[in-house]
Structures are given as C-alpha cells and as structure tokens.
Design a binder for these strands. Structure first.
Lengths: 238, 238
DNA sequence: CATCCGGCATAACCTTTGATATTGATCAGT
DNA sequence: ACTGATCAATATCAAAGGTTATGCCGGATG
C-alpha cells in the first residue's frame, strides 16, 4: 500500500482501514524524482499535492543573497505539500534531498474527499498542523538553543519521526544530508556544523558519517537538545 | 459583529456573508482577560477554541531554565488556538500580552460546522495554515537574519497584519510588548534588543516607545528585515 | 587518465551577541 | 510617602559563532 505510512505511529490520529482505502484510491500517479531536484517553486499555482513514499525532501526559503534556510525536512509518510490544497500556492520552495518516490493527489480529488469524508478531512487537517507544531519546535530550537543543541535537536527529531515509520532503530538511521545541509537547517555555517559534529562525537553522543546517523547516547543527546517529543503527537504521549 | 476581522484582508479567502453568519452563530461566549494571563497550558485537553477579538496574545514555549521563546504573536481576527480543534491538545502555552477580548467556540460546534459546511471548513483550515506560514517565516527570520533584521522583521510583519484589520496606518500602531518581550520573540536578550532599537532609531527607520511603534521609513526597514509579505496571503499579492 | 568539484576537516582571526552590573524612571501596592 | 517591581538605557567583558583560507579526499565527468 503506497500511502501506508501516512500518520503511522500517531495514536488516535491514525487512519481507519476505510480511510486508508479512500486515500489510496485517490492517488493519481506515483513518480520517482532524482536527488537534489526542486519539485515546487514558491508562488506557483498548485493543482496537486504530494505524499512522500520513499526518501527525503526539504522545504526552504532563500535570503537576499540566495542562502537557504530549511524550514522543514520530510520523511516517508509525510504529506509534503498538502498545505497547498487550502492555500492554492506556496510561500516556499520544495526540493528533494536524496532520490525519492512520491504519490500525487489532484486537488479536485482532495476536494471531493473533504465533501464526503469530514472525518478523514480532519485527519488531513491534523497532518498539516503537525507540520505547524514541528515549525514551532524549530522556532524554539533556533531561538533558544546554541549550536550544539540545534544540531542535536535535529538528529533527535528525525530519529523519533523515522522510528514511527519503522526507518530508525536503536538510534541508527540513514539521512541523505551533508554538513552544509545541516547548517541550512540550523541557522549556522557549514564550518560551525563541522565543529559541532566533532564536539558531539568527542562527547560520545553521536556520529554522522556518509549519511549515516548513529546516536550513541540518546538520553544525553536529548538533554543537550532539550528534546521533548510530545509535539510530534506520537502514540506514546497520547 | 464579533468575528468580523477573521480572515479580513485575505483576498479570495475572506468569508462570504453566509459563512460569516455561521461563524457568528457558533460563538458560545465572549470573555475579557487581563494582561499577562495564561489562557492555555501546554498539554491540557482542550474543548474550546478562541478567536481574538481585541488585544494581543502570544504563544510560547519554555526552555529548561524557564526562558520563553515566543512562537507567535496574535492580533485581532486571529483564531488563536483553532489548532487545538483537530489536535485536541496543544504543545505550547498561550498568554495575553495586553488586556484582551476573546470569543469562545466549543469544539462540538466546530465539529458540526465541518460536517455541514465543507467550504467554511476549508477556510478555517486555511487560517491555521496561515499560522504555519508565519511560523516558517519566523524560522527564516531566526535562522538567517542578524539581530537588527530579526527585530525589524517582527515590526514589519505586525504592521502588515494590523493594516489588514485596520489597526495600523502610515506605519503606526500600538503594541503592548516590552523590550524583553521582543527579545523572547527574536531569540535575543533584552539588553541586545535595546541596542538594536537604538540602532534602528539612529538610522531613522523606526521608533518604539511606550508600546507605540512608528515606522519612519518602511522601505528601508523592509530591506533590513528582508521582509516580503507574500507569506501573509493578503489581498494585494493574490 | 586527468581534472574538477563538492564535501569534510581544521586553523587564525574577527564580529556579533550574551552575561553581568549599575542607574534612573515609572508604577502598583501598602 | 515609601517600597519593591519592572522596564529602559548603558558600560564592560567574555563567549559563541562567522569569515576566510588551506589541504585533503572521493566521486563524477571529460
């Protein structure tokens, strides 16, 4: 089932099997996109929304000199630009990190879902608010944490989210991001991310090499990150 | 009309007069709350959502030492914690800045609206995604701008939003925030906000005194802030 | 095969911002 | 009228992080 990971691990917000079927039937096409390709440009009028099936994508905004700030990283099961359905256009760009597989939904299909299945609509709505909750956590992360905390927090969040969809275990997961990417997600420079990674490694908290994250001490890392996963609305905190 | 400012100035997303009536009829009560009072605590189960009618409220999260990071500032017309309707509980606290007047909606009323008015539902959904868009802009602001840019951006955003509801004109508006509040919203210390305000004043960009903002040079301030208001989905950029 | 480029690592230096302290003004409560 | 908060303003010093530069490595590309 293409859309099986959508809201997986989200407790009472998971889909019923009927809802899963409605969603699955709404898939218009499944596409593969190579690494490092833009898939939505800010300001475009959008007629379809995409569910991420495999791989990683990010959302970002550029500053005046063209420097990126990532505003979200998406993992399989995320309905990446469902925001575009009520909004009609997006205020940011979306691009792939590694190679991805995506499922496309036409907005008129979603429209008919909202008219016929208020309950499923509410879960779609919920999933966009989960993005908002993650955005808020990133505001906190950038506003209140130092460089080590920011990077640590990102790794903690991705670990928790990937665990929910069965793609991380024992604090290990694959992540197709470079050090400059981490910098763009953390409001830092690439050079400083390098320093921070060294510090985290020397404290035996975490290693990150060749796209592979290995969290050595989850509790200590979470402490550095001030990471408290309630905002992810996972099954445990329900 | 209590709810008249909801989505005011948002172009195609504004409510029709029928939708306005449905919303107005859904108001369960109108309350006044004093300045600096908490109105929602993180983690509480929530049964009502509140539309801000008059005054200012903020949403925030605390770090381990109890320092706040504001994640949003709300102005009249904002449906402050509509997020709580699909989510059932919130991951952050909400408090008033100055004294406020709020309208409360019971979740079962909202539930029946979603079942009977898919079109209005989509506008409610839209309004929560507007919050998400503002969150993203704040991520950008904290991640990519220096102290002056961050503070300038906040003033630009509030100016634009207050203009939409007729509460700012010519770059002037009232804002019941202190310098420490601005610091909490900008990931800075109060001391540094003071330095920044002085710099902005000396450049003849803006004055802020006794809760009164006076933007002297909008264009130059927007340049410092890298402020581009498309993310607010106002009528002009439609 | 040679070259180029991007990513990783590290160093030296400099700018921005935080931490702490002090002072004066204002305002609410007693 | 006094007290105690809180806010604003400012100075000094320290720390965090940015900037620039350089070298190395490995994978893509001609």
């Amino acid at each position: 089932m293409i859309s099986e990971k959508f809201l997986m691990g989200r407790g009472r917000h998971e889909l019923s099997s009927e809802e899963k079927q409605v969603l699955e039937d709404g898939i218009e096409s499944v596409r593969h996109v190579a690494a490092r390709k833009q898939i939505v440009r800010a300001g475009d009028l959008i007629e379809t929304s995409t569910l991420l099936v495999e791989g990683f994508v990010c959302r970002y905004m550029d500053d005046r000199e063209g420097q990126r700030q990532l505003v979200a990283v998406h993992v399989p099961g995320d309905f990446v630009d469902l925001h575009a359905f009520p909004m009609k256009r997006l205020d940011h760009d979306i691009a792939t990190l590694g190679p991805v597989k995506i499922a496309c939904f036409e907005h008129r299909t979603l429209q008919s879902i909202t008219e016929r299945y208020p309950h499923l609509t509410q879960k779609l709505w919920f999933s966009t608010l989960l993005d908002a909750a993650m955005h808020r956590e990133w505001i906190f992360r950038l506003g209140r944490l130092g460089a080590e905390g920011r990077v640590a927090h990102l790794f903690c969040e991705l670990n928790a989210r990937l665990e929910m969809v069965g793609m991380a275990a024992e604090g290990r997961y694959m992540l197709p991001m470079t050090q400059p990417d981490l910098a763009e997600a953390s409001g830092l420079t690439g050079v400083h991310v390098n320093r921070v990674l060294r510090a985290l490694r020397e404290k035996n908290l975490l290693t990150f090499k060749a796209g592979e994250v290995n969290i050595l001490d989850r509790k200590a890392l979470a402490a550095v990150a001030e990471f408290e996963p309630q905002y992810l609305y996972g099954s445990r905190g329900d």
